[in-house]
Design a protein around this nucleic acid. Sequence first.
DNA 1: GATGAATGAGGATTCATTCAT
DNA 2: TATGAATGAATCCTCATTCAT
Lengths: 223, 223, 223, 223
Amino acid sequence: MPENPTRPVSGDSGTGAVVRRGRPVGDREAKRAELLKAAASVIAQEGYAQTSLRKVAQRAGCTTGAVTYYFANKEELVTAVAESRFDSFDAMLATGRTRPDIRAILERWLFRTADDPEFWPVMSQLLAHARYEPAFAAVIERRYARHRDVLASLLATGQAQGSVRDDIPADLLADQLGAIGDGWTMMFPIEPGRFTASRVQALLDAAVTLIAPPSGAHRTSGS
Amino acid sequence: MPENPTRPVSGDSGTGAVVRRGRPVGDREAKRAELLKAAASVIAQEGYAQTSLRKVAQRAGCTTGAVTYYFANKEELVTAVAESRFDSFDAMLATGRTRPDIRAILERWLFRTADDPEFWPVMSQLLAHARYEPAFAAVIERRYARHRDVLASLLATGQAQGSVRDDIPADLLADQLGAIGDGWTMMFPIEPGRFTASRVQALLDAAVTLIAPPSGAHRTSGS
Amino acid sequence: MPENPTRPVSGDSGTGAVVRRGRPVGDREAKRAELLKAAASVIAQEGYAQTSLRKVAQRAGCTTGAVTYYFANKEELVTAVAESRFDSFDAMLATGRTRPDIRAILERWLFRTADDPEFWPVMSQLLAHARYEPAFAAVIERRYARHRDVLASLLATGQAQGSVRDDIPADLLADQLGAIGDGWTMMFPIEPGRFTASRVQALLDAAVTLIAPPSGAHRTSGS
Amino acid sequence: MPENPTRPVSGDSGTGAVVRRGRPVGDREAKRAELLKAAASVIAQEGYAQTSLRKVAQRAGCTTGAVTYYFANKEELVTAVAESRFDSFDAMLATGRTRPDIRAILERWLFRTADDPEFWPVMSQLLAHARYEPAFAAVIERRYARHRDVLASLLATGQAQGSVRDDIPADLLADQLGAIGDGWTMMFPIEPGRFTASRVQALLDAAVTLIAPPSGAHRTSGS
DNA sequence: GATGAATGAGGATTCATTCAT
DNA sequence: TATGAATGAATCCTCATTCAT
């Protein structure tokens, strides 16, 4: 009988690369990552309510027994999916952290879809379900708080440099931008047609203008 | 074990109406509204994924058969719930339309919870599920488009009057505010503790400041 | 009220095999055959319209879940029943093929009940339902065509040997005999009392006389 | 409360014409005939297993209450459908009874579809279900016995006139022809494509040849 | 370590029937 | 006379979970 598989994964497991350190065979983490990928895929394509362990197993090309072997139960699987998504989001934010270009960061923040088209659908499903799965809500709360802190300190830096308006505290600005990101996360899967490239650019310009210092305001164009 | 089906049920169903076999007064719409209320309540408290017709029936104090009598299937029920929620939101917006105070409108818009504490949870569940129920996504799209138009024209009026910044087109501003509202709709059920009255006021102030004309910017306080 | 699902079931399921949770010996085909037998039995005794997966499960001494585990859905189960019936009919025809006695063959063909008293009722139910289950009609068509071919070639041989009238093409004779078999298949379950042994013998004699060469006609006696 | 509606209809009600004698309004029999037609139509198109009172009511353009008002229960409705089908079959046979042309009679007997394309499907469904509905089997038995008698006496007449072979008793011949008719009744709905006009003619010729006196045998052609 | 057979509760939906109006 | 609201059991099917192998 395996050791209790309830131990959460804390490594970066969201980039799709299979992590292989030490023993290269029978890698438990690799198998878990594989299942997480399959689970995220099912959630994105079928919706949380229609996600079943059976479908995840089929997508991963294994048996139902394997899923419950690697994850104690459904809740644990879903929670792990959430963790891995946040990992991948964190990795995305970390990229190019060298030059803190506020526009580039916002772009990644608000339209976090570049490399992973399933990111938005998955996150919207997880967010919606968080309220009803306490262990799961905890993950969201913890990770979101961290994100808000990162974003707030980024904005504070911007305010100190004069590139961000300082008539609103950085933490409130971070909350507003976070809410905008969440709002788009929800709407994008429903109305993808409304989010053309040019519309996204215009929305981004508008967001930058909103948080720019008053003197730096510049006219943006609608779609 | 089922009860003898020939014995008429005479218990109180909760609304004070006595439930009987046979043909009661045919107030079809009232009964539908009652069921919609029950459905919304279940969705809010249990989440969409855990909502079943059986639970809705129990909450409404009737049998499952009664639910499927009034609504052809689950999809129809849920879609009707969505419509009714939008109706109540529209009614809320219409109230006090006489003086278009931008702050009051935003308050109602972004924190649409005053009279209906279940509004946010229900909407967040419906939004999340819209993608996977086409008939349902159609309702969302149609209603949201209307809302955005209303908000955009409101903001355009504000721009003409000088109370709203005009360096961003009204439709883009409306989109941003809509996204903020959706974002909070999602987060509020997950982290209600974060949305204290004072924090909500601060967020509202910040939002007003964001869309105010540059010259009218005024310092807001964080939480 | 359901029993505690953690307690393993240990009762005898009727066939002598002890039913247990977990992974038993994986004799998939044997279990399927067992379920098919149960299904045929239910169809024969209750009629297709009153056949449910639950009844099949009860007859087989297992749970409904087990049935849907071995057969994706009802249609697949019923189709498999049809195939297995045809298999058994084919096997019956093949028996004693050594001496092609036309009367013995007809007897087996028209009164295919010798070893399996449920054969007629099952076939009549399946036949009647075939029209409304395409996947199922396909099985019937394919198998019936083969049977007609076998019968026609048999009759052609008889014609060549002079034991079968040759003023009617063999394929038409085969169709007529096939129709007679189907007709009796339908009527036997409804009026079993009419099919006494002597009446069956008389019908068989009459059928043989019908297809005998004119010169070989001999007087048969009624019931 | 209406009088007990269990009294069976015994008039000719199968030609589709609405019977109106005496009081022309509120004609109970007319309404029943209308419902019977709807029921037969549903049985033919959906199959017995998929026939529900609701569907019958929809097809007839009335409420479910109306159906249970005119027929005590489903069994009574179905039994009445059977009676009406036999009525229409009897009427068909009675037509042109003046000159007892054996071939014309057989044609009507075996291919009773000329004026009512739903006749075969309905009869095949009713036949298949008869075994499991005693009240219903009784109707079948009684009516079939009458038909066999009619056919047997017809054949006996033919034998006396020398137009039918007399080496097989008339009652056995009638049974065989009846079985052929039933067999085709079953197969026609499943494989309509096999029953082309020319094939039907060939089958008919073959049947006539089968029962013709040995000396009168003539070569028929296959399809 | 990993499988997959089996479970049984619960899912949505359909149904024949009842009966107050 | 005729309606249609309401019932509750039964339908097929899916599910997370268990566990002998």
